[in-house]
Design a protein around this nucleic acid. Structure first.
Lengths: 171, 171
DNA sequence: TTGGAAAGTCAACAAGGCTGACATAAAATA
DNA sequence: TATTTTATGTCAGCCTTGTTGACTTTCCAA
């Protein structure tokens, strides 16, 4: 907070002009507008099917973590179990997700996408990846590396852990 | 869509490995987790005051565009006037925003933050900038340039325009 | 075997999106 | 001047997706 309105000093020959309040504000607005673009395409598809963004998030991570328990999914998504339950209810009722009672622990429900669920997930992620791919291609590999690094540094520590655990799957 | 599950070919000596579906998925998850971090600190402050993220977005852009009309703000925020109206109503009733009747065109309302509104805006953006600054510092200037470039490429064209117009203010 | 913890469900509420219809005032135009 | 268009605000009602609280079922450890 101490740097507001000031121009950071040049130290050891490095310019710190990328840390001015104005540059930070630009970054904040970039996040705001980019996130809108990021969700726009899946949102359109979901709206047609009477589903919402929450269903997309759930199917994404069920696809990524097949057989996950509800609890595990709760940690990743960061919502209350009641909130997730409503979304799962819909997905199960519509035949997109299957909840299998745990074998070792019968309190647990292990979640899997059905064929229809996998098809939906693919449709949504295809749309999202298409935009991402276009942006990556336009920006180039070095920019992408920077993009990923800054995003990682913005995460809460526990999300950073989860994010890193998601590495090297389906290579 | 055509590249799913394939490894992009190396063309003209460039590696296109940063465009694999898996790399794109990583970017998607990075956006998801980072956006959570991005909004977490202001959300906590807002919750204490009985306000929501929508109030933050409104005060942010009223601060950035002092004297903006309601219509202009609607375009930037991308919500309906009914939705914005509810938010503005609260902000005006709580003495955080002032709506002045237009001089040239008396149908217009020009929006300004009051002193209390400016103080709230500063508290919120200080919190958000603090996280941003830490991420920027940790990632370094080159990463930040890449971050901003990729985000810009992810925006819808009209948001990209608005984003670019926001350059070079309060230098 | 029993009491607590864990997983999941049901009910109710709130924020903040949305649409539609309508009112008012002012500006622009025929 | 009469009419239409524009900018704004408001009411009503709906939906999604968060929340908390209370409850059931199941498991496990004392």
């Amino acid at each position: 907070m101490s740097e507001r309105g000031t121009v950071p000093q040049v130290t050891r020959g490095e310019s710190l002009l990328f840390l001015t309040d104005d540059q930070l504000r630009r970054g904040i607005e970039a996040m705001f507008f980019a996130y809108r673009g990021f969700t726009a395409d899946p949102d359109r598809i979901l709206a047609e099917k009477g589903l919402g963004r929450a269903h997309h998030r759930a199917t994404h991570f069920i696809n990524r973590l097949p057989g996950t328990t509800v609890n595990r999914l709760l940690e990743v998504l960061g919502v209350t179990k009641q909130s997730l339950n409503r979304v799962l209810r819909t997905l199960i009722d519509e035949g997109l997700v299957e909840a299998r009672v745990g074998v070792r622990d019968r309190r647990e429900r292990h979640l899997y996408l059905t064929d229809a669920g996998a098809a939906l997930e693919r449709e949504l992620s295809d749309a999202q990846r298409a935009r991402m791919r276009a942006a990556y291609r336009a920006a180039g590999p070095d920019a992408v590396a920077g993009f990923r690094l800054v995003l990682e540094e913005m995460m809460d520590p526990e999300h950073k852990r989860q994010y890193r655990q998601g590495q090297d799957r389906a290579q």
